[in-house]
Structures are given as C-alpha cells and as structure tokens.
Amino acid sequence: MSLSPLLDVRDLKVHLRLGPNVVKAIDGVDFRIMPGECVGIVGESGSGKSTMARAITRLMPNVNIAELSGELSFEGQDILAMPDGALRALRRGRGFSMIFQDPLGYLNPTQRVGRQIEEALSCDSSRGSNRNRVHTLLDEVGLPDPANVARRYPHELSGGMRQRVMIAIALASDPQLLFADEPTTALDATVQLQVLQTLYRLHKERNMAMAIITHDLGVVAELCDRVYVMRAGKVIESAETVRLFEHPQQDYSRRLIELSTRRLPRELQA
C-alpha cells in the first residue's frame, strides 16, 4: 500500500518582479511530504527556501508576483486555487502552520503574546482551559515563568523568547504540517535541544509532519528523515538524511557538510 503525500508540490515557479527585472526565486521545484514525515530544507542564503515556504502556505504579503505556477496540493486539495476563506480555515484548524524566519515581522506589536497564542489555539475544549493551554505551550517551548511571559508585549522579550513565542503560536493550532523557517537560530544550545525535543515529541505523538528550513546541519541530522538541498531557486539534491551525509552527490552539498564538520569538536563529528 502506498500512502499519498500530505503535501505535494510539482514544478512550482515563483517569479518575483523587481523593477524592470524578474527574480526567479523558485524555478521549477518538486517537493513532497508524507503524513507524519520530517524533512529538512537546506541551501544557500537566497536560494528560495523562505519563498517556497511562503508560497506553500500562501502567506506572501508585500510581493509583486510575475509568475506563480505549478501544482500545490495539501491532502489532495489544490492550494493555489483555494479561496482565501478555505485557506484560512486550513491554517487554523489542524491544517498547516508556519514559523517565520523573522518573528518580529509577524507578531502583533500591540498585543500581549499570551493573547496571540490564545487566538491561534485549535477549538478543542477537551484540552482544558485556554489559559492553561497557553501556559503549557510556553512551558513546552522552554520559556520560564509562562504566566509572566504571556503578559508581555513582543518588544519586551529577547530575540530567542520571541522565536519561542512564534513556535508556540504555530503549535497552538495543532497542525498536521508544521513549516518551520529557521526555528531555532536565536536559541542557545540547551534551549534549542529542548525545543527540538518538543517538536520531535509532537511529531511522534500527534503524527505531525514537519518541514524544517535550516542552515544548521546538526538540526537536520537530529530530526529529519529526508533532506532537500536548494540552490538558486532549484532543488539540486534530495536524499534520505543518512545517505546525504554519507554520500552527498553534489559538490555544494559536500561542501556544506565538510564546512559544518570542520567546526565541531572531534567527539561530535560524523
């Protein structure tokens, strides 16, 4: 029996208008996530990773699109053709959610963060009161003193605390697919480990599929079943994680692995 993909992207093109020019931010990408799978997306800065995530979740404010084409389906539904209302429902109720690379740009500066998490909660009253659920989420992403943090505004938090609030918001809707764009860059190593543990636990317990965009190959090695390597708007390699680390096919992939390895103490190298 072969399962059908949760997310199926075929020949996706996202070309953006830039004055008289066009930037081919995504230029023919195939990408697939099975239910309950965890995939990593690595690659050059500027290779189109965030653009792809935004196109898939259809959250593209502020862009001037020259071309958007290809097939994008989530659970067999065509996302590109979906009306906004249906899409919003998909984001809120057990569909997909997104952790953005730039939390400050997506958090509401005038609203306390606890309230923002509460608004994202899935409607599942069996899980206790909203306040308790907010506090549990904050605790799970490693924020000490949840009651206190919930009352603060985004600007009253450190960079890593904001990043964790963003993660809590994304998890609040209990998604089937979590798209995470550099979710742990602002976290110290011990908090990062704790957050990755939480993501992994939810991934297993709730069969939550994950796509993690990261520059940190350690995150990929720890969590991901499969990896896509991107360069200049294209996927240049995709493979199971162990295979990519042990037998990279492309020079660029090899270079990423080698440079990452060189910086680690011997006991942590592959």
Partner: peptide, 22 residues
C-alpha cells in the same frame, strides 16, 4: 548540548524520556 552531525547517532530521535526543562 551542541548537536552532533551524525544522523545515525541522533540524540533526539533515540530519546524516550520527557524533554528536559529549563
């Protein structure tokens, strides 16, 4: 707490305990 680069020795995937708490 630094992550290793060896997917065969993933700490998190082999972990069964509840996450550590700060």
């Amino acid at each position: 707490a630094r992550l290793s680069l060896d997917p065969r020795r993933s700490r998190i995937r082999s972990m069964s305990a509840a996450p550590s708490r700060s």
